[in-house]
């Protein structure tokens, strides 16, 4: 119990730090970063959208890696950590999937475009929703851990295949070149803002995962104690 309280405390600290850093990024993005010439103010959403996508993908990869270790070591905490990372990944995917269309409307003239990154995130997001639903349908921690790990590992391998699929689909059906949020030739000042945004999201990720993991640990301990008492 004490260890999960400590982790929860650390998670709260990281979350507050992350939120402060996010605030700082917004201030910097609006007040101290020049507005992009062709996209105008809409480009600012890039500082929320792209880091969310990066951290969501990272979160799912961490779920996959933790799943491999779970199947190897059979340590319940690894499964709880994998699930915490998946849940936070789902949350960041929602940010990515909502800010994408908001940016897309003024720039592409359409809310949804089957852009490679947006499409990949959508499918991976749906897969991990399935992952969380399946966890909810299982009560035994061993079975839940094993099944979740199978799905987590398969999901990690699916990401590059989905990306490749959408990429091939795009190259075979050439469409007018779309402006990507964040072209490579971004000025340094924008790049720094972007890097800061990624940093803020990473801190938030740590904060969220630590809190979610601590909660799961506490729940696990409580259920074990209830089982012992029975």
């Amino acid at each position: 119990m004490s260890s999960s309280t400590g982790i929860a405390r650390a998670g709260q600290v990281f979350t507050i730090l992350g939120l402060v850093a996010m605030g700082a990024v917004f201030v910097r993005a609006f007040a101290f970063t020049p507005t992009e010439a062709t996209q105008g103010l809409a480009q600012k959403i890039f500082y929320i959208h792209a880091p969310a996508a990066i951290v969501a993908l990272m979160a799912f990869s961490i779920t996959g890696i933790a799943s491999i270790f779970y199947l190897w070591l059979k340590e319940t905490r690894l499964d709880l950590f994998a699930a915490a990372s998946a849940e936070v990944g789902v949350a960041f995917s929602v940010i990515m999937l909502t800010t994408g269309p908001i940016w897309g409307k003024p720039i592409w003239g359409t809310w949804w475009s089957w852009d490679a990154r947006l499409t990949s995130t959508l499918f991976i997001f749906l897969l991990f929703i399935g992952y969380l639903v399946m966890r909810g349908a299982l009560t035994d921690p061993v079975i839940r851990g094993q099944y979740s790990s199978v799905l987590g590992i398969l999901g990690m391998l699916l990401v590059p295949f989905i990306h490749l699929t959408v990429y091939l689909f795009r190259t075979l059906h050439p469409e007018p070149v779309i402006i990507k949020p964040g072209a490579p030739g971004m000025p340094t000042v924008m790049l720094i803002t972007f890097a800061m945004a990624v940093g803020a999201y990473l801190i938030l990720y740590l904060g969220f995962v630590a809190q979610r993991y601590a909660l799961a640990m506490a729940q696990e301990t409580r259920l074990e104690e209830a089982g012992d008492a029975a």
Binding site: G130, A137, L138, I143, L164, T165
Partner: peptide, 19 residues
């Protein structure tokens, strides 16, 4: 081995059918 097996299979399998 889960409850609602018939519901779970399409939910879990369809993302893997994309490629």
């Amino acid at each position: 081995r889960t409850r609602f097996a018939e519901l779970m299979l399409p939910l879990l399998l369809l993302p893997f059918l994309v490629p």
